[in-house]
């Protein structure tokens, strides 16, 4: 019991420290691909966040609303992190409905992001949130469908059910759908149209400054780690079986790092898509995968 609680706390702390470090590694890799040196160390993103927390907060007309929504976003992100297994089923992810609850938190985080973007009365921010909503309509619809397929496939609502699942073509397709969802909702190129930096002056983030910006950026990185961690769990949990506990945890973090690197390299290859084209492309891709899932499901392969 005490071992469980202490392991849960330690892994939670690691998951809180890790996301900006992973972002630092991503920046280093991106620099390598560009044939340049890049940031001085992989801790650069932490330095950025530390500086933002030390800066002044410029309070705008809707500053207080922004502040409260940002706090809600932060706490919701941390709550979702509590539920995420890290190779080890912690005391929260062992719950009967942990997978369902986790998905609700993920959807809520997306919703609060949109709320946060509406809060500042800035036209750039408003344009950003409309783009986000347009993409979200497609992305979240298929996330729910994918999740439904997953819940039916594993025959349960908890992360623990993933352990006894076996791989099949249907499972791989569901995995592909949810991995694509994680890629799109982490705001990576070509789907970063809501933030589209030079075009929309940082879009939804335009009015945030100092500690508030630091908190929002940190929440975004933790959200990324949660989404990628979710994909990592879907991949490794059915494979782990009766492995040593420490080995399981190590495997989780290695797969998290690999997924993060694969996603970052993919985002470097692509260019930003057109605003009207992004939801369309995504819709057809998701539709194709959903149809394939249905066919393989009916054929029982």
């Amino acid at each position: 019991m005490w071992l469980d609680i202490s392991l849960t706390i330690i892994l939670l702390l690691i998951m809180l420290i890790l996301p900006p470090v992973l972002d630092g590694i991503e920046r280093k890799i991106r620099a390598k691909i560009h044939s340049r040196i890049g940031p001085p160390s992989i801790m650069q993103t932490w330095y950025d966040i530390r500086k933002l927390f030390a800066k002044e907060l410029v309070v705008t007309d809707t500053g207080y609303i922004m502040f409260f929504i940002a706090i809600t976003l932060f706490s919701m992100t941390i709550l979702a992190l509590f539920l995420l297994p890290t190779g080890f089923m912690n005391i929260f992810s062992r719950d009967n409905i942990s997978l369902l609850l986790f998905s609700i938190f993920i959807l809520a985080i997306q919703l609060i992001w949109m709320l946060l973007s509406v809060a500042p009365s800035n036209p750039y921010s408003t344009i950003g949130v409309f783009r986000e909503a347009l993409l979200g309509m497609v992305n979240e619809l298929f996330f729910m469908l994918g999740l439904f397929a997953l819940l039916v496939y594993v025959n349960g609502l908890s992360f623990t059910h993933l352990i006894s699942t076996s791989y099949s073509i249907t499972y791989v397709l569901i995995l592909l759908l949810l991995a694509s969802y994680a890629y799109v909702s982490s705001g990576r190129i070509p789907f970063d149209i809501a933030e589209a930096e030079p075009e929309l002056a940082s879009g939804i983030l335009i009015e945030f400054s100092g500690p508030l910006l630091g908190m929002v950026l940190y929440s975004n990185l933790v959200k990324r780690a949660i989404l990628y961690g979710f994909v990592a769990n879907l991949i490794i949990l059915p494979l782990l079986g009766e492995l040593n506990l420490l080995l399981k945890i190590l495997l989780f973090f290695i797969s998290l790092l690999i997924i993060w690197i694969i996603y970052s390299v993919t985002s470097i290859i692509f260019a930003r898509t057109r605003v009207d084209l992004a939801p369309k492309t995504l819709f057809f891709f998701y539709l194709l995968v959903t149809i394939l899932i249905t066919i393989t499901w009916l054929l029982r392969v």
Partner: peptide, 12 residues
């Protein structure tokens, strides 16, 4: 980026 310099799009 070697010096930690980054271009941002908003003065805030």
């Amino acid at each position: 980026e070697r010096f930690g310099i980054k271009l941002v799009a908003s003065p805030r």
